[in-house]
Write a protein that binds this DNA or RNA. Structure first.
Lengths: 364, 364
DNA sequence: ATGAAAGCGCTAACAT
DNA sequence: ATGTTAGCGCTTTCAT
C-alpha cells in the first residue's frame, strides 16, 4: 500500500546523516508519535493492525530507540551502576560478570567504574554514575561503616546494595549481600587448627582498604582464642604493590615458626605460596596455606587450594534482585547473609613432626 | 549578599523531592541558564565574578549535572561501550580494568556487556549499547572477518576498535589492536621444539568462538612445518563446559605420545596441567606445557607458566586512544600490532629420555 | 559578556 | 484505540 512512500523514505533516510526518530516512524506509518511509543513499549492498547504497520515502518527506517530521549522524559534509565575496587581480582570480575548476565536478562544496562581500593576514587566514580542518573548502584566500598559515598547515597535516598561489604552497628541499615566473613574465617582457621597446627599466621591485605579483611582477621582471632592459642597480629601486606617475599622470610625465620598461613584472599594465598616455595618450603609438607574466596582457579592448582567458597553467582543475583526491589519502591528490605562453604584442597595438612626447616636465605 | 535567598532556596530544594536543575541554579545566581551552562562547561566567556556566583549557587543547591539532558542535546554521550566474551577470563577482565582507568582519566564513562562467546549475544549486547548512543565501542568478537555486528557498525559508521581480534583479508580495514597471534604462537612452539620435543599437541578452545584460537593454531602449524615435523590437528575442547580429562587421557594414551602441549590460552593451560597431573604426569619432567596470554597469575604458579605475554595495558590504552581519534573524526587510521614477549617459566623443559610413562587409568 | 529561545527524542497526561 | 501537547534538562545559535 505505502510501498512507494516506503522506498522514498528509505532512500531519504539513508541519504540523511541522521537516524530515524520516532517521529519519522509515525509519519511513515501514518499514525501519531504516541502510538509509535505505545507499540515500542508493548502497550496493549494498540490494535494489531496499526501495531504491525508501526513495526514495519520502524524496520524499514532502521529505527533504533534513543534511550537518552526516553530516559530524559521518564527519569528512569534502566541502567545500574557498579563500583568495584578492581577487576584484576577474580572475585570482583566474576561478580561483575554474573551481575551483567542477570541485568541483561532483566533488560538493564550496566555502567561501571573501579576505585583501585581508594576512597577518593569512590567519590569520583559515583559522581560519574550519578550524573548519568543510574537507577541504582551495586558496589563494594573500602569501609561500609564509614563511607562518605554511602552517606551521600543515604542522604539522596539513592537505591544501592553493597556486595561483599558487611556493614555493622549504626550502618546495619545499609542493604548488603555477602557471607559472614568473621564466621567463615573462624571456621577455616578451626579447620587448620584441627589439622594439628599450633602456630598460625594470618596474612592480610591492608585493613584500611577492606572491611572484609578486618572481619576475617577477627574470625581468625576468634578461632585462636577458642582453641586457647595465643593471639597473633596479622601480617598486613600490600601485595598489589610490593614484593611480599621479604616479609614472609622475616616471619618464617622468627620463633615460633608458623606452620600454617591463613590468607585473607585466594589471590593473596597464591602469592604467599609462591613466596614460601621460593624460600624452600613445601606445601603442605612443611607449611600449610588456606585462602578465602573460592575462586575457580584455586581448584586447578596442585595441590588444590583450601579455602572458603563465597557463592559469587548467588551474591550477584541476590544483589541485583534486592536492588531492583529497592528501586521499585520496597523499603526496609533486609540484607542477605549467604551461605559459605569450606573447600578442602590439599594445601592444608598436618604440621611437620619436626619444626619446619629454616628457610634458605637464597637470593634475598 | 544573597544570603537570605540562599537559605530560602536551600530549604526549598531540600524539601522538594527533586534535584536542582540548571534552571534553579540560574535563578539563585540571578543569571540565565545559558550562563550557568557556560560556567559548567568551563567557557572562557564568563566573567570571574559571575562564574563564582554560579558555582556558589550550584554548590548551595547540591546541583549535579544531568548527563541525560546534556547528551540528548549534544548528541554525544562521553560514554564508550565495551563488549567482551566474558570477564571470567583474566585477559578480558584485566583489559576492561585498564580501559576503565584510561577512560575515567579522559572523562569517559563505560557501559559494558558480555557475550559468553555467542554471536547471538553480540547482537543483543550491541543494540543495548547503541540505544544508549555510546560514542564508540571497544570489543572482541568471535570472528572479526565475518561478523554481523561489525557489518552493522561499518554500515552505520559507528566508531569501534577491536581488541585481540585480528581481522584479515577483506576485513583488514577494521581498526584493531592486539598482538600477531600467528607469529607469537609460532614462536612459543619453536621454543618448545628447541627444547627437543618432536611430538607436540595443541589444545585449543573452540575455533568457532575465537579467531585468535584459529590464528594461533596456524602459528603452531607454521612452526611444525618449519621444523619438518608432521602436522597434527589441534585438540578442540570446550573447557568452560566440559571436563577435559577424558580427552587428554585419550591423547596421552595414543602413540606417538605427545611430550608437549601448547594451549591457546593460559586459562586453558592451567586446566590442562591440572588434568595431566591427575593422570599421573609430572610437569615438566614427563610432559611440557605452554600457554598464551601472559596472565599475571601464571607467574605465581610453581613452576611458573611458560607463555606468550600480551601487553594488556598497552592494548587497552592503545585501543582507547585509537577509538578516541576515530570518534574525533580522524579516518583511515591504521590498526596496531603490539609487541608480544615470550615468558619462559618452568613448564617447558626437555622431553623425558624414555617415552612418557603411560598414564594411570586412575578413576577414569 | 550575557540572555532569549529553540529543540534534542521521547513519554505521559489529557483529550477525543 | 488513537491523537495532541507539554516538557524532561540541557546546549547552542542568534541577539544584544
Amino acid at each position: 500500500m505505502h510501498n512507494e512512500n516506503v522506498y522514498i523514505f528509505l532512500g531519504f533516510m539513508s541519504t540523511m546523516n541522521r537516524r530515524a526518530t520516532i517521529r519519522d516512524v509515525a509519519e511513515l506509518a501514518a499514525v501519531s508519535v504516541a502510538t509509535v511509543s505505545r507499540v515500542l513499549n508493548g502497550s496493549e492498547l494498540v490494535t494489531g493492525i496499526t501495531a504491525d504497520s508501526v513495526r514495519l515502518a520502524a524496520e524499514r527506517l532502521g529505527f533504533r530507540l534513543n534511550s537518552i530521549g526516553r530516559n530524559l522524559r521518564s527519569t528512569k534509565t534502566q541502567t545500574i551502576g557498579v563500583i568495584l575496587p578492581t577487576l584484576t581480582h577474580p572475585v570482583f570480575a566474576d561478580c561483575l560478570q554474573a551481575i551483567e548476565i542477570k541485568a541483561a536478562d532483566s533488560g538493564y544496562g550496566l555502567v561501571i567504574a573501579t576505585t583501585s581500593y581508594d576512597p577518593a576514587n569512590e567519590e569520583r566514580a559515583s559522581e560519574l554514575l550519578l550524573r548519568n542518573r543510574v537507577d541504582g548502584l551495586i558496589l563494594t566500598v573500602a569501609n561500609a561503616n564509614k563511607s562518605r559515598l554511602l552517606e551521600k547515597l543515604d542522604r539522596e535516598a539513592k537505591p544501592y546494595v553493597l556486595v561483599y561489604n558487611q556493614p555493622t552497628g549504626a550502618a546495619k541499615h545499609r542493604a548488603s549481600v555477602g557471607v559472614d566473613n568473621r564466621l567463615a574465617a573462624k571456621q577455616v582457621t578451626e579447620h587448620i587448627i584441627a589439622n594439628g597446627h599450633r602456630h598460625l599466621c594470618m596474612v592480610s591485605g591492608p585493613f584500611a582498604q577492606s572491611d572484609r579483611a578486618r572481619a576475617r582477621a577477627r574470625g581468625f582471632a576468634d578461632a585462636l582464642e577458642h582453641a586457647n592459642l595465643p593471639a597473633t597480629a596479622p601480617l598486613q601486606v600490600d601485595f598489589m604493590r610490593t614484593d611480599i617475599r621479604a616479609q614472609l622470610f622475616e616471619v618464617t625465620s622468627t620463633r615460633p615458626t608458623p606452620t600454617a598461613f591463613f590468607c585473607s584472599s585466594d589471590q593473596l594465598a597464591i602469592r604467599v605460596m609462591h613466596s614460601l616455595r621460593s624460600l624452600g618450603l613445601r606445601i603442605p609438607e612443611d607449611v600449610s596455606v588456606a585462602g578465602f574466596d573460592g575462586i575457580t582457579l584455586g581448584d586447578w592448582l596442585t595441590p588444590a587450594l583450601t579455602t572458603v567458597v563465597q557463592p559469587t553467582n548467588e551474591i550477584a543475583e541476590s544483589a541485583f534482585t534486592l536492588l531492583k526491589s529497592i528501586i521499585d519502591g520496597e523499603r526496609y528490605l533486609g540484607s542477605a547473609r549467604l551461605h559459605h562453604t569450606l573447600r578442602t584442597g590439599g594445601t592444608v595438612a598436618k604440621p611437620p613432626d619436626h619444626p619446619a626447616q629454616s628457610p634458605k636465605k637464597g637470593t634475598l
